[in-house]
Each structure stands twice: as structure tokens, then as C-alpha cells.
Design a protein around this nucleic acid. Structure first.
Lengths: 199, 199
DNA sequence: GTCTATACGGAGATAGAC
DNA sequence: GTCTATCTCCGTATAGAC
């Protein structure tokens, strides 16, 4: 694991193609061409397409955990950290307008396919949900932290879906501004604990 | 057109299967089995799979226009009519939790496939966007009516995406309540015109 | 209009040489 | 580990009988 060899190249290429073209629409030929290997070589690394999907989701789970841990380690207030989350919509604006949110579109496709890996992909959402929930707890919204986390998650997903259809950068910026404003008002009455317990 | 014969049966079955399984994952065999005809019989009615998709989108555009016109004809205030829109999330809660929003998931899939029919499917969104925009104009929010319409559309899409992943009915109800509350505050300062010009 | 039979290509997957 | 060759199944699409 963690090699930069063929196996990891396959996972990287598959993750990219699954995002840009969708899981079902991506064939072994696509991935093989992207990596520059033959189709047959594939089965030395993965016994089936579902195994590649598992590996891709696993890698993305690991990378997401690292990113969230970094945001946490950077310090600052919970509000500042949650702005990092919201700001992903700006930072990834171009790919989102082309291919949607990597998490939302994957879960949506797997749900339609009735694919068993949906549960694993859903953990990507859960990672953000839990992390956001922790931030709201730290910000003093202990009782409704999870509902607030889900709300923020839903808002960002909605923006991603419409961004993909309308390709409207102004819309994205406008919604991001509104989400930040919402965050401010949501945290305002409980501002007392925003900087405390910043472990 | 508008016959209840085989052609319409095919469109109905295809629309249902495209929604539940996705467009790409639905084969002629699936549709033929659902209608109870042979695969070969298909090509008397549609020359290609894309033609079925066009017919499905066309039917859904027509039905959506009828629905919006009915909401308009029902009278009431713009706020009341927009509650009909928000309430779709409750009325269709079960299928949404299983298969997502019929509009959002179709547009998302077609975008990933790079399918030319995306533009037509996007008109489904535009229909709601324009209708909601009109309501906001009637409610006195002339200057930012379209932005408000997009916001409401995005909120509902976000709820649909997370509902599909987490299958949480409480979350849906909670978000719907918040959307209704948002609508109230958004229209409150311009309440003077809510009942006027109710053509 | 509806059927059966079939062509044709592409998909996932396997075997075995190098 | 990587390749070529091949298998099998399933998808869209066509031809032609009834």
C-alpha cells in the first residue's frame, strides 16, 4: 500500500475518471488507456471493477480525513474552520461546475445503481457531517449541532447540483456569501465558546 | 401523440426506469419487460435510445408546465404557491429518499455522460426557476427575484441529495420547516404586494 | 404493429506466454 | 508484472416473417 507504482496509478486514474465520467460509464479500457497499461494487466491488481471502486473510495476517505485533520490542526475558531469547508465551493468551482460535487455525484450514482458500495461512499458524507457537527459543538451549539451540520452540508450540495446544470459562477459566489452570513448569525448567539476548548 | 397506446406506455415505463435506475443503466430489455413487449418492437416507435430520452424529457417538461400552471390557477398568494413547491419534498419523500430528485439526478447523470440532452433536461430546472422567479416578483422582490428563486431551488436540491444518502425523514421535515421560515422572512419586508396583482 | 432471429460492438473477466 | 489472445455476456440496433 501507499506505493507510487501501477496499483496507485490505477486508483488515481480511476478516481479521476469515476468523477468526470461516472462509475458505470468508465470502462477498464478508459482506465487502462489513462494509465498506459493493457487491460489484462489490470487483474493482477484488482480482481473486479467493484474492487477498484472500493480502493478509490478508501483512498478518498483517507484523504478526506487528512484534510479535515489539517483544518483542525491549523487552529483558529470553529467558524473560521467551517469557512474552509464552505470555501471548497470556490476553490473547486471549475470542476464542480463541470462534474458536480465528487461526493454527492458518487453517492447519487451508486444509489441509483443499487450498488453495495453506497454505504462506504456515504461515509465520505458522514466524515464531513461529523466534523461540522464537532465544530458546532465547539462553537456552543451543542443541542442542535448535527442538524446544523446537515443543513450546511445540504446547502453546499444544492449549490453544487445547480452549479453543474447552470454553470453560473456568480450564483456560486452569491450562495457562498449567503452561507457565510448564515454561519455568522447561527453562531452569533453562542459566540461565548467559539475560541474556548480549541483542542 | 397523447395516445395511451404502446408508444406512450414505452415513454411512461422509460421515465419510471430512468428515474429509478438511471438512464445509462436502463436497457431496452428492462423497458420492454416493463411494458410487456419484445425488444424488436421498440424500433417501430423509437429509432434509438436517445429518442426515448428525448420523448421522456419532453413529456416531463409538458407535465411540469401543467403542474406549475395549476398551482398558478389555484389562486392564493405567491408565498402560498411557493409552499406548494417546497412541499413537494414532503409529498414525494419516499421516492426522493430512494432515488433522489427526478430533475437533479437526471441532469447530474447527463452532465457526467456529456450527453447532448442535458440542455433539454436543464429546461426542467429552468421551468421551476422561472416560475419561482415570477412568484418573487409578484411578492415584491423584483430586483433579486431570480437569485431568490435559485436559492430556493438549490436548497431543495441539497435536501434531496442528502435525503437520498442518509434516508432521514426527520432531516427532510426539519429542512422543509426551515425553508418555509426562510420564505416568510424573505417576503416579510415586502409583504405589501403579496396579494396584489394575483392574475 | 408485433414478433423472432440475428448482426455487431463493447463490456467485464480469464488463460497463459513472456 | 505485464502482455496478447480469447471467452462470454449483454448492450444497441437491424432484417424480415407474421
Amino acid at each position: 500500500m501507499q506505493d507510487t507504482g501501477t496499483r496507485q496509478q490505477i486508483i488515481d486514474a480511476a478516481a479521476d475518471l469515476f468523477y468526470r465520467q461516472g462509475f458505470e460509464h468508465t470502462s477498464f479500457a478508459h482506465i487502462a488507456a489513462a494509465v498506459g497499461i493493457s487491460r489484462g494487466n489490470f487483474y493482477h491488481h484488482f480482481k473486479s471493477k467493484d474492487q477498484i471502486l472500493d480502493a478509490v473510495i478508501g483512498m478518498r476517505l483517507a484523504r478526506t480525513e487528512v484534510m479535515l485533520a489539517q483544518w483542525q490542526a491549523q487552529g483558529g475558531t470553529p467558524a473560521q474552520r467551517m469557512r474552509s469547508f464552505i470555501h471548497m465551493l470556490i476553490a473547486n468551482q471549475v470542476p464542480i461546475m463541470e462534474h458536480g460535487c465528487p461526493v454527492g455525484t458518487l453517492c447519487g450514482e451508486l444509489a441509483k445503481l443499487g450498488h453495495p458500495a453506497l454505504a462506504q461512499a456515504g461515509r465520505l458524507f458522514t466524515l464531513f457531517r461529523s466534523w461540522l457537527g464537532e465544530q458546532f459543538v465547539l462553537a456552543g451549539r451543542r443541542s442542535d449541532a448535527d442538524a446544523l451540520a446537515l443543513h450546511l452540508l445540504a446547502r453546499s450540495q444544492g449549490v453544487a447540483v445547480l452549479a453543474q446544470t447552470f454553470r453560473d459562477a456568480d450564483f456560486v459566489r452569491n450562495e457562498v456569501r449567503q452561507m457565510e452570513a448564515w454561519l455568522d448569525t447561527a453562531l452569533a448567539p453562542a459566540a461565548r465558546r467559539t475560541t474556548a476548548t480549541g483542542r
